[in-house]
Design a protein around this nucleic acid. Structure first.
Length: 424
RNA sequence: AGAGAGUUGGCGGAGUGGUCGAACGCGGCGGUCUUGAAAACCGUUGACUGUAACAGGUCCGGGGGUUCGAAUCCCUCACUCUCUGCCA
């Protein structure tokens, strides 16, 4: 959530930022909020004045009662009753206005960093770099949804039977590959200084609001209504919410956490072409890295996360490219996002396997995640996260890019985790 | 799922209608003492809002009510704990 004082003091900057994100009616909406805030503060100060008087009188009554001066006390009581009426009415106005402001603020996305390119769709994303050779496959090479059947390692039919579309069953070497990747990713994260956590995968409403999935993405999460809990779409939610309502001691910064969880996404409305096989699922596994840093260190941290993720892709010997997302393609809560895409040779397309973002204070403002400056002021920290990595598309790319007529070669780094070097 | 108890500042824990933003202890910070440290002693120590700075206002799980006045009384919701039941 954007900070009110930023809207108030840097209105033009905010409007420009929202425009870059293709947010409609930015100027009007921001002006409306600033106007509401103006009203709010005016009412507030009148309210506070009246309240102060009432408080003072009440205190006097207390003293009069003790000293036994009943008559004077009664007189003072009458005096406060009118004050009370007025204060009540002002307080009602205040809470109505505050609610309006809150709702309006929830609707505003984060402002993009200055380096974010202009643009509306994925076409406008900027390719920052590309790495690795795109392999030449043999005649008759297949996409992964055929390979998994051929080697019987992932079964969508079984998943359909048990749950429905988008819930595959991993079997044999396929299951082993999942486990190997998870362990490999977690081990790498530990080596890079991340603390491993294993959070809950159902979260309450407050957590959903904390990281910004609510109210923005309400319909995209599975919701256990009976208990009002949400299945997490990413480990970002529970891990970042560990630090909700926390004032972090400066010496503990930066906080670096990593965790593996299943992720659940309803993907309502986004089913269609290009979602065959592992490309888009309702349930998948992911290792997520989360950082919490001082404001002045967050972009440095984002670069560090980006190169860490690239390192993983290099170790897995996958050809990839890094995109800097344009204003229109970025997530709601992000200030700058790098997407990592792996080339799927058999599908002839780039697959997004990771997304690393800096949220600056957008999440921490909701989370009330702060630190104390040297001068003793409490200030918002910056939050960041990235996938490191999401499994399904990595699996798809490994299967497709490493296929040979007589089996699929596994990347060397995974051999010790897998206990085999080849599928088939 | 049933019954009961509870939710107070970084932590523990007082406080059942008035001067309580909240005793006391621990922890933290500053100081005295010390070559240094420990101990002891003294002082200090919540957040939000607001202001040029003061002042002022709000916050004792959330919301509502009673009252001139609520941490304290009432209603309601949420959560936690204990016992019983069930269960990996």
């Amino acid at each position: 959530m954007l900070q009110l004082n930023v809207l108030r003091e840097q209105t033009d900057l905010v409007v420009a930022g929202l425009n870059k994100k293709n947010y409609k009616n930015a100027a009007q909406e921001v002006a409306a909020i600033v106007e509401l805030d103006q009203q709010r503060r005016q009412i507030q100060s009148t309210h506070d004045e009246l309240q102060a008087r009432a408080n003072a009188i009440s205190k006097e009554i207390g003293i009069l009662m003790k000293s036994g001066d009943r008559e004077k006390a009664e007189a003072s009581k009458a005096e406060t009753s009118e004050l009370k009426q007025q204060t009540k009415s002002l307080a009602d106005q205040l809470s109505a206005i505050e609610e309006q402001i809150q709702q309006a603020l929830y609707k505003l996305p984060n402002l993009p960093h200055t380096s974010v390119p202009e643009g509306r769709t994925a076409e406008d994303n900027e390719v920052v770099l590309q790495h690795g050779e795109i392999p030449q496959l043999h005649e008759g090479a297949q996409p992964h949804w055929e390979l998994i059947q051929k080697y019987d390692i992932i079964d969508f039919e079984l998943g359909n039977k048990i749950s429905g579309a988008g819930f595959p069953v991993y079997k044999k070497q396929g299951a082993r590959l999942q486990r190997a990747l998870i362990n490999f990713f977690l081990d790498e994260a530990m080596k890079a200084g991340y603390m491993e956590v294993q959070p809950p995968i159902l979260v309450n409403e407050a957590s959903g609001y904390g990281t910004g999935q609510l109210p923005d993405k309400d319909g995209q999460m599975y919701h256990a209504k009976e208990d009002n809990l949400y299945l997490i779409p990413t480990a970002e939610v529970p891990i970042t919410n560990i630090y909700r309502d926390v004032i972090v001691p400066v010496e503990q910064l930066p906080i670096k956490n990593a965790g593996h969880t299943p992720c659940f996404r309803r993907e309502a409305g986004s089913w269609g072409a290009d979602v065959r096989g592992l490309n888009r699922l309702h349930q998948f596994d992911k290792v997520e890295i989360v950082q919490i840093t001082l404001p002045e260190k967050s972009y440095e941290a984002l670069e560090e996360m980006s190169s860490y993720i690239q390192g993983l892709l290099q170790k897995l010997e996958l050809p990839y490219r890094v995109l800097r997302l344009c204003g229109g393609d970025m997530g709601f809560t992000s200030a700058l996002t790098y997407d990592m895409e792996v080339y799927s040779t058999a599908q002839n397309r780039w697959l997004e396997v990771s997304s690393a973002s800096n949220f600056e204070t957008y999440q921490s403002n909701r989370l009330k995640l702060r630190y104390k400056t040297e001068s003793g002021k409490t200030q918002l920290l910056h939050t960041l996260n990235g996938s490191a990595l999401a499994l399904p598309r990595i699996v798809a790319a490994i299967l497709e890019n490493n296929q040979t007529p007589d089996g699929i070669n596994m990347p060397k780094v995974l051999h010790p985790y897998l206990g085999f070097e080849k599928i088939g």
